[in-house]
Design a protein around this nucleic acid. Structure first.
Lengths: 220, 220, 220, 220
DNA sequence: CATGAATGAGCATTCATTCAT
DNA sequence: TATGAATGAATGCTCATTCAT
């Protein structure tokens, strides 16, 4: 009896999409490309159909609603982005064996940089709609926060215990670092027309260095 | 056959808007409120007319196009935001008499924080449409960049000459600091439903401190 | 705070239709003709628009919904049919000065026969939709019953007091006579393609005679 | 090139329906229930398929058209209703051995009352579509008339010869009695949400008594 | 025989824009 | 100058029907 109807619909529709036919794939690809370029509100279902080489009715047979099609694009991406965003990295990186928070941060930054690059178009869709539509944001934000926060707090606590991090409150630390990093991803993959020069590793060094120095003198 | 037809129209219409009638004021206010809330694409001109207590035809008599109405909202804001963003602050702050870059940054941060808070709704409209519509961004971005860059480089050069800043390339410095600060504004005024606690000065100290430490060790 | 939302909408929309423009008249006429012929469900708004010589959008500007257009057809007819159906006749007929119930019945029969003939097409629409759509019937029936019953009971009581009618319960009497008469109207104006021969007066004599003899021997 | 193409199709399809598979039975049942409730026009084939637990294609494999499915519902009912309506009753009732027309009428009324109650849902479908769709009515009416008229006239003539009936024209007598009785069935099974109280025999006495007294004084 | 994915014409409705008053 | 009725193209969506498997 929880309040998350969007999330519920997300899960429901996600379950149905076990085997995607070739046509569904094409529909999704076209939708992603068009939503990414012009935004959901400025894309018509007939455009999507034309680009997919599919009848317009076919879209509705599979997704029922234009809104549902958007969810079919966003949801799997979000479900792979959110918990994973820290969990997977956390494990992959074997924090115990890491030199410290700096290494963890660097690994995570590189991991997400590549993930978002790999899914650049969906990332665009998600960011655009997330900024554009207050209700979507209001409904999703709590869940997103929770999923990220849980895992990140675990990591932060671990490194605090190791004496690797200043005694800043977890929340403040996260609200400082996360938007900074995420903002750079948005800039790079959503707003910029092309990626800036320089290797991923250089970028990682630059960003992580900035953050580490920046939080160096912090007290809560 | 110049490339900036939007900008041209922007400037032209901006000049015309010297004397706005009461009705135009009401139209603009309603448009801003609705665009901010639901986005340009999801707002109908009839809604704007109803909220303004004005006939729908009146909107078109004044602005000709819905798109033009959007520009009439965005342009003046942009024109007051951009060059001023550095120039005015630069002067207001009397850099020569300042202790250094840190003071300049702090003053500028506070100045814009208050300006965007004062114009929160228009800020929302601009950010939303800027993120949502690639063509708008592509056409405006160069002008925005130019206006900001010119003034900011002047300031950066001044403080570099004073030995107040590391020998990082102007561009890299700007691309580090500007998105960081601007991202926090977006988070606070566009994405969050309410402003976080804490005084403006505390926030300024926090942000400026982080940046100053962060850029402390940089080399280009 | 009563439950009659259809009736409420009926009244609301009826109030708005104070001055009907020429175009609204044409739209209504076309809608009536088409609804009468093919039924509401089998008539498209584009058909109505074409027949009215009006753009499809114009229909929605005036009536908002196809359903509302149906109500705009039905409601005024119902409002003029129902209470009047007995009240007006009751007065027009001056029951005190009539020879008795037989005269009253005859006057009423003729009055309604002519009214329905005059509004044959709307009558068709109302009957068809009333039979076809359970929810419409369920929502309207109580109100219709009330309006008719109140006035008819008054008349019946009056004639009972005069000794003109057997001591059958009002309800049973009404449920015998009303469907019989109304059924003949439906047959004549809705189901038959053309009216049967014979003058109205002959038909009235026939029907009233049948009823009077039929109820002659009744006991409750 | 005869005029009764619907009837032809009716007969043809009726012959084919000798052996109905279980699936066809389920399809027909679902169609009847849905048509009865919401009307043919407001029922989709996919709804019928879902309710039948059958693929949508299966419906079209068996009936070819949605319209044909409707006929497959209506036709057998009509074929059992019409001639039987008088013939079977006529025989079952052994008119020769009856006390007279009153008994015949009473037996017939009871017979049909029970038949329509038994097939209430199909009766609803038939009445609704018959009222709603002029072309269906126009095509079927002559045949219905013929089937009923032939048998009824035979009965009427018989009772006239016995001196049991006034010398009213057969047609006028039928057009008086038939709609009256049929109208009560429609009221009871189609329009009312539940049947009125009272036993079938009481109702029969009431109706037949009314008719007998009513036609008592008739002259053509 | 049965399926259900695919179709595409058709539908009610919306909305930016025009124009006579 | 302001109005608001009128427009018609475009939109999201439905649904009877087809057909390859």
């Amino acid at each position: 009896m929880s309040s998350d109807n969007i999330l519920d619909r997300m899960m429901a529709s996600a379950k149905l999409s076990k085997k995607e036919t070739a046509k569904q794939q094409r529909i999704l690809q076209s939708a992603i490309a068009l939503f990414a370029e012009k935004g959901y509100a400025n894309t018509s279902t007939s455009e999507i159909a034309k680009r997919s080489g599919v009848a317009e009715g076919t879209i509705f047979r599979h997704y029922g609603t234009k809104e549902n099609l958007l969810l079919a694009v966003i949801v799997p991406f979000l479900k792979e982005s959110l918990p994973v965003m820290a969990q997977e990295v956390f494990e992959e990186v074997h924090p115990e064996k890491q030199a410290g928070f700096e290494h963890f941060l660097r690994a995570m930054f590189l991991n997400r940089l590549r993930f978002f690059r790999e899914n650049k178009e969906i990332f665009r869709v998600v960011v655009k709609e997330f900024v554009y539509r207050d209700e979507l944001r209001n409904e999703l934000m709590p869940h997103i926060n929770r999923d990220i926060v849980v895992y990140m707090f675990r990591a932060i606590d671990y490194f605090k215990a190791k004496g690797d991090l200043p005694e800043l409150s977890n929340e403040r630390l996260l609200k400082l670092v996360f938007p900074f990093v995420f903002g750079r991803f948005v800039l790079r993959f959503v707003l910029a027309s092309e990626e800036p020069p320089g290797s991923d590793e250089e970028e990682a060094d630059f960003v992580v260095g900035f953050i580490m120095r920046g939080i160096g003198g912090l007290r809560s």
